[in-house]
């Protein structure tokens, strides 16, 4: 870790009260004014799961047992990840009002998106456990590794969001590119199917897809009731640390121009 990264992290820590307020605000704002309010946190992924269940389980007859439960176990973390990266990418550009009028450090904005999406994931867990009860999924000791998996996902998301948010100030096309890449990536991750169902010659796609390992870890914990692949998680964390370091360097070299350009 270089001094720059440490300095940025220190800055984030000094602003932690603001970060937590902004996270709460974002979570509250998401559904404020709607009649069902907070229930949308549950309803949104639930409805999406029903759509995928209908398409892949009913119409296309996936022969995975408890398909709906499998989908929701992977869909919830995926939504948190794609939300963090997708909205993280526009987080700095969207708050130009703040950046051009106050001395707010821009780096807290992507972090706020990452943390609020993570919090949203945690709030969605009750549905997952409700489904687990319904399908009587065996949930055991591997649950203890959930905090670690979530932590790895936070680091991965933050590393990407910080870079994308900084770069998007200079190349606005990025946000559209990222939107499409995330859709592609969704289908390249085993959310609506099992890797096992994929022909052998394409399995390498998942071996080398770090995000497939990330989503896979949630399936391990919730669906297969086994410990996740710690070697893969370690590699993921190592990779994320490198990306985080690069993102910080990029952010440091560019952030002074944000107030003028964002």
């Amino acid at each position: 870790m270089s001094a720059d990264v440490l300095r940025n992290i220190k800055e984030l820590l000094t602003y932690r009260a603001l970060v937590s307020t902004l996270v709460t605000r974002e979570l509250n704002a998401r559904y404020r004014g709607s009649v069902l309010g907070f229930f949308w946190t549950f309803l949104n992924p639930l409805l999406l799961t029903l759509v995928y269940s209908f398409v892949f389980d009913v119409a296309m007859r996936s022969n995975l047992s408890n398909y709906t439960y499998y989908v929701i176990a992977g869909l919830l973390p995926w939504l948190a990840f794609s939300g963090a990266v997708g909205s993280g990418c526009v987080s700095i550009c969207d708050r130009r009002d703040l950046l051009s009028k106050t001395r707010l450090p821009a780096q807290i904005l992507p972090l706020v998106t990452v943390l609020s999406n993570t919090a949203n994931y945690l709030f969605g867990l009750p549905i997952l456990f409700a489904f687990a009860l319904i399908v009587q999924a065996p949930l055991g000791w591997p649950l203890l590794s959930l905090p670690l998996v979530v932590a790895v996902q936070i680091v991965v998301s933050h590393a990407l969001a910080l870079f994308l948010a900084s770069a998007n100030v200079f190349f606005r096309d990025l946000q559209h590119i990222i939107g499409n890449l995330l859709t592609l990536l969704f289908f390249l991750c085993p959310v609506v199917y099992q890797i096992r169902a994929v022909p052998k010659e394409y399995q390498f796609l998942f071996e080398w897809n770090p995000f497939a390992h990330m989503i896979g870890a949630y399936h391990d914990i919730f669906y297969y009731d086994r410990w996740p692949n710690f070697a893969a998680l370690g590699a993921l964390l190592g990779g994320a640390a490198i990306v985080l370091w690069l993102s910080n360097r990029y952010y440091d070299s560019r952030h002074e121009a944000f107030a003028e350009l964002a």
């Binding site: 009260a17 603001l18 605000r25 704002a29 404020r32 004014g33 009002d97 009028k101 106050t102 707010l104």
Partner: peptide
Amino acid sequence: LDLGAGFHPEFSGRENITLNGLI
């Protein structure tokens, strides 16, 4: 520079005081 920079329209004045103060 701009009074009320960062006010969130959906939130009450009370909540915005905290937010703006932190900013």
